[in-house]
Design a protein around this nucleic acid. Structure first.
Length: 260
DNA sequence: ATGGTCGCGCAGCGA
C-alpha cells in the first residue's frame, strides 16, 4: 500500500498539480492539508473521476484536511473525539482505509514561542495524543500523516543557528511530539535515512528550494505493525518543482501487504 | 539590497 501526505497550500490553487500527481504516483491513500476550502467547494467529483473516494473537513479560507483513498474509506470522523476539548479549526480528519486507521493532520504553526498561538499548538498536540488514545490502539495498523509543523531534531532544519529560539524546534514542541511517537508511532522515513539533511518544506522566498534550505516538518507516522512492513520512503522533490508549486513536498511511504 | 513569495481576498495578515 502506497500512502502519501501533502500540504497543498490551497487545493483550489493546486488542483491541477494534485490531479497530475495522483495520475503519476497512483497512491492508495493521500492525506491532504491546507485545502483552504469550504465543504461545498471540495472537488470530490474530480477525485472520484480518478478512482478515489474522499472525505474533507474544511472551513474555507484557512486550514482544512482531507483523505483520499482507492482502498476503501469508512467511518470518517471530523475533528477530535467528542470527549476532547473541541478544536475551532479544521485540522484533523480520520477514516479507515482498508484495515488501516488513517489520520490526516495539520498541526498549528505556533507563530512565535510564547505567543497565544504557541500555547494553542502545545494544547493541540496534547489533544492529538488523547484522540489517538481514545480512538484506536497502537497495536493496530495506524497512520498519522500530515504537516506536524515541528522539526524533530536539528538534522531537520537547514540552519540550526537561524532557528535557535523559534518555533518548530523548541524543546516543548519536540517533547510534545515525542509524547505522540511514544504512544506507538514510527517516523519511517527518518528511520531509513538517519541524519540525512532532507526536507519537506521550503519557504517560497529567497530561492530556498533551489538552495536546499528547508525543514522536515511533514511525515508519515506508522504504528509498529505497519512500520515493520515499510519498504520505501521518499520526499518527492519533484512535487515542489515547476509552475505554481505548494511550498511543501509530498511524502510517500510504501508498505508491504500484511500477514507473512 | 536589511527583503526576498505565495494565497487569501482586496488590506494586510498568516505561513
Amino acid at each position: 500500500m502506497l500512502v502519501a501526505t501533502w500540504n497543498v497550500n490551497s487545493l483550489k490553487a493546486r488542483l491541477p498539480r494534485v490531479e497530475d500527481w495522483l495520475q503519476q504516483v497512483k497512491p492508495d491513500v493521500l492525506c491532504l492539508q491546507e485545502t483552504k476550502l469550504a465543504a461545498d467547494a471540495f472537488p470530490a467529483l474530480t477525485f472520484s473521476g480518478l478512482g478515489y473516494e474522499s472525505v474533507h473537513h474544511g472551513q474555507g479560507q484557512w486550514n482544512g484536511v482531507a483523505i483520499l483513498s482507492k482502498v476503501g474509506l469508512e467511518s470518517p470522523t471530523f475533528g477530535f473525539a467528542k470527549e476532547i476539548e473541541p478544536d475551532p479549526d479544521a485540522r484533523i480528519i480520520s477514516a479507515s482505509c482498508g484495515n488501516v486507521r488513517v489520520h490526516s493532520i495539520y498541526v498549528p504553526n505556533g507563530r512565535e514561542v510564547g505567543h497565544e498561538h504557541y500555547q494553542y499548538k502545545l494544547s493541540w498536540l496534547a489533544r492529538l495524543k488523547q484522540h489517538l488514545e481514545s480512538t484506536t490502539s497502537p497495536s493496530h495498523d495506524v497512520i498519522v500523516a500530515g504537516d506536524f509543523n515541528i522539526a524533530p531534531t536539528d538534522a531537520d532544519v537547514w540552519d540550526k543557528a537561524l532557528f535557535d529560539g523559534s518555533t518548530h524546534v523548541s524543546q516543548p514542541e519536540r517533547d510534545a511530539l515525542k509524547e505522540i511517537t511514544n504512544w506507538g508511532l514510527v517516523d519511517t522515513l527518518r528511520r531509513r535515512y538517519r541524519g540525512a539533511q532532507i526536507y519537506s518544506y521550503y519557504d517560497y522566498r529567497a530561492g530556498r528550494f533551489h538552495k536546499r534550505e528547508g525543514m522536515r516538518i511533514d511525515y508519515v507516522m506508522a504504528s509498529q505493525s505497519l512500520a515493520d512492513r515499510a519498504v520505501f520512503d521518499v520526499i518527492d522533490r519533484n512535487g515542489r518543482k515547476g509552475k505554481l508549486p505548494s511550498d511543501h513536498c509530498p511524502i510517500v511511504t510504501v508498505f508491504r501487504n500484511g500477514s507473512p
